[in-house]
Amino acid sequence: TFELKGKVGKVVKIAEDHYLVEVEGDKWIAYSDEKLSLGDRVMVVDVDGLKLKVKRIP
């Protein structure tokens, strides 16, 4: 999972307290300090167990 840091993915689902992002064909639970929208491109900035911390990228 640490090899996911720096990888780019996209938001595929928005849940009440987390996001579902697809990175390299796999779906992961993710969270972010900013509000994300469906389809946003994101970069993995940290890995916390099986959850990814992501940030939006242009």
Rank of each mutant, 00 (worst) to 15 (best):
T1G: 15
T1F: 08
T1Q: 11
T1P: 14
F2I: 09
E3D: 04
E3Y: 05
E3G: 01
E3Q: 05
L4F: 01
L4Q: 04
L4M: 14
L4D: 03
K5Q: 07
K5F: 10
K5C: 06
K5G: 06
G6I: 00
G6R: 00
G6F: 02
G6M: 01
G6C: 02
G6N: 03
G6Q: 01
K7Q: 03
K7W: 01
K7F: 02
K7Y: 02
K7G: 02
V8N: 10
V8H: 15
V8D: 07
G9L: 02
G9A: 09
G9N: 00
G9W: 01
K10G: 12
K10R: 12
K10D: 14
V11H: 00
V11F: 01
V12N: 13
V12Y: 10
V12S: 11
V12H: 14
K13W: 05
K13P: 02
K13A: 14
K13Q: 06
K13R: 05
I14V: 10
A15E: 12
A15Q: 05
A15L: 09
E16F: 14
E16L: 06
E16C: 05
E16P: 10
E16H: 11
D17C: 05
D17H: 07
D17F: 10
D17I: 15
D17S: 10
D17T: 05
D17E: 15
D17K: 12
H18E: 15
H18V: 11
H18N: 07
Y19Q: 10
Y19F: 11
L20P: 01
L20Y: 12
L20M: 09
L20S: 11
L20K: 11
V21I: 05
V21P: 00
V21L: 07
V21H: 00
V21T: 14
V21K: 00
V21Q: 00
V21D: 00
V21A: 13
E22F: 03
E22H: 05
E22N: 04
E22Y: 02
E22V: 06
V23G: 01
V23R: 01
V23L: 05
V23H: 02
V23Y: 01
E24H: 04
E24D: 06
E24I: 13
E24Q: 06
E24G: 11
G25E: 10
G25C: 06
G25S: 11
G25I: 11
G25Y: 14
D26S: 12
D26P: 15
D26W: 08
D26F: 13
D26R: 10
K27D: 03
K27L: 03
K27R: 13
K27G: 07
K27E: 04
K27M: 08
K27T: 05
W28I: 06
W28K: 03
W28F: 11
W28S: 02
I29R: 11
I29L: 05
I29A: 15
I29H: 08
I29N: 08
I29M: 07
I29D: 08
A30L: 01
A30D: 00
A30G: 11
A30P: 00
Y31Q: 06
Y31C: 07
Y31L: 11
Y31W: 10
S32F: 05
S32L: 08
S32P: 06
S32N: 15
S32A: 11
D33N: 09
D33Q: 07
D33E: 12
D33M: 06
D33I: 06
D33V: 10
E34P: 07
E34N: 09
E34F: 09
E34V: 08
K35Y: 15
K35I: 03
K35A: 10
K35D: 09
K35C: 05
L36Q: 13
L36C: 06
L36I: 14
L36Y: 14
S37P: 15
S37G: 13
S37V: 15
S37I: 08
S37Q: 14
L38D: 13
L38S: 14
L38K: 07
L38R: 09
L38I: 11
L38W: 10
L38Y: 12
G39P: 06
G39E: 14
G39I: 15
G39V: 15
G39S: 07
G39R: 04
G39K: 07
D40G: 11
D40Y: 12
D40L: 10
D40T: 09
D40N: 07
D40W: 08
R41W: 10
R41T: 13
R41V: 12
V42N: 01
V42P: 02
V42W: 00
V42C: 06
V42A: 12
M43K: 03
M43I: 15
M43D: 11
M43N: 09
V44L: 02
V44K: 00
V44W: 01
V44P: 02
V44A: 02
V44E: 01
V45C: 04
V45P: 00
V45M: 14
V45L: 11
V45H: 08
V45T: 14
D46C: 03
D46K: 02
D46V: 04
D46N: 04
D46G: 03
V47K: 04
D48H: 06
D48T: 11
D48A: 09
D48E: 13
D48Q: 05
D48C: 06
G49L: 12
G49A: 12
G49R: 07
G49K: 15
L50C: 04
L50A: 12
L50H: 13
L50P: 12
L50S: 12
K51S: 08
K51M: 06
K51C: 04
K51D: 10
K51I: 09
K51W: 07
L52E: 00
L52C: 03
L52Y: 02
L52S: 02
L52D: 00
L52R: 01
L52T: 06
K53I: 04
K53W: 06
K53M: 12
K53C: 04
K53Q: 11
V54Q: 00
V54S: 01
V54D: 00
V54K: 00
V54A: 02
V54L: 03
K55D: 14
K55S: 15
K55P: 00
K55W: 06
R56G: 12
R56Q: 06
R56P: 13
R56Y: 14
I57N: 11
I57D: 15
I57H: 07
I57G: 14
I57V: 14
I57M: 15
P58W: 06
P58F: 07
P58Y: 14
P58Q: 11
P58K: 10
